[in-house]
Design a protein around this nucleic acid. Structure first.
Lengths: 125, 125, 125, 125
DNA sequence: GTGGTCTAGACCACA
DNA sequence: GTGGTCTAGACCACT
């Protein structure tokens, strides 16, 4: 199996696929030039509709990490920065604030939050 | 105005209300025994539907920080909201992973993520 | 009728919708704060599937000109630059080269191309 | 190598080949009577399927700039490719509108578009 | 056989 | 009633 999704999660399937691919890239399991499985194959592996996988692939292209249509399947590319710096930092801040809010709701202080974030980051690296 | 919400956020309104109340409690702006505004009044203050506020109040009751309805309005309760440790750390981890995922998708490394998280933390407290 | 599409064009419907909205914004027919018709209504006006209109709206959000989910329909926003400058100019150059190539194939010189581009731009402005 | 194609472009290969040949004619690198490489040879040069090259040749024949097949390979014809004026200006307008649309979607004004078009034009000619 | 587009529905979260 | 998600297919362009 190429990647894992959680059908019970409220997170959309195409988002889970997108995130998994990002994760595998940042962990070095996927490198520029590697090919992703064809849409239909991954769809049948995940027991989902092809359109769902297609949407994940499309968004990965918009993220600038995937390339290729029709030619020869979908290929991991060198990462291109595609967002304006202002937009990038806006999204980052929003994500950080959301985490900070939830952590504070649970009575966590900054140091504990940083520690948990570090553990959640990656095993190695 | 009792609290602030961001109508342009993709975050549900009832979640924003819930978080604001939690935050005000942890900052001491709300103390046990204090009363929250009636559902209809807060709803009209926020220019939203009463059902939205009602849902926020309902979830706050489930969180264990709010009590009583019908007769004398809603009152902040004494006991600190205490989750089972396992549930608490499960929620924390999930929130941290969500932030980590989004940060990685934006090409951020751990150090930068920690810095942004620190800035997003409240100045005081 | 809110906007016009060409069912015989090879251009995808959702792209045509997206472009029409961009055009109406640049012509001042749509201003920040204006609301677009609900997905289902526009879909029935255009005799297309709701998913097609939904996709156009989603891409308009990614373009940074449309905002709003669930809350109260889709609203035109102040335009936010959302692409990295490098990506923006890459796309521009690619579009320009495509036009230049086709024009040269038809034996057009630069001056004539500029004149035709100017006429294609906008009636007023 | 006879001509260059960009495998990463979303532009179909057969279109790129067709355009390159047009371009080489308009630049005098190809003259009436010159022969194009056999389909199979060009296909192997470009590492593509013969059908792709065959399609490019077929469209060049329809364009009226290439003639003959089967016996002695494909030969550039004498007569300049001449479209009916109405058809020519229709194609030009369509290409111009397509560029104008994409430029507007990127928030570009007419002057900037003209400047980029000028830079995209070939230095010589 | 690759991905892209579109259909005609369904169910869900939010207000 | 709003948009979001997903299904289970179909057809098409390109290789």
């Amino acid at each position: 199996m190429f990647l894992h999704v959680d059908y019970t999660s409220s997170r959309p399937l195409y988002e889970q696929i997108r995130e998994q691919v990002h994760l595998m890239i940042s962990q070095g399991q996927l490198k520029p030039g590697d090919r992703l499985p064809p849409v239909r194959q991954l769809a049948s592996d995940l027991a989902t509709a092809p359109a769902t996988v297609a949407r994940a692939y499309r968004e990965l292209e918009q993220d600038g990490v995937l390339k290729g249509k029709g030619r020869s399947g979908s290929v991991i590319t060198e990462r291109r920065p595609i967002l304006a710096p202002a937009e990038r930092s806006r999204r980052l801040q929003q994500a950080a604030e959301q985490f900070a809010t939830q952590a504070r709701m649970l009575g966590v202080d900054l140091n504990e939050a940083i520690q948990i974030l570090t553990e959640s980051w990656l095993p190695e690296q």
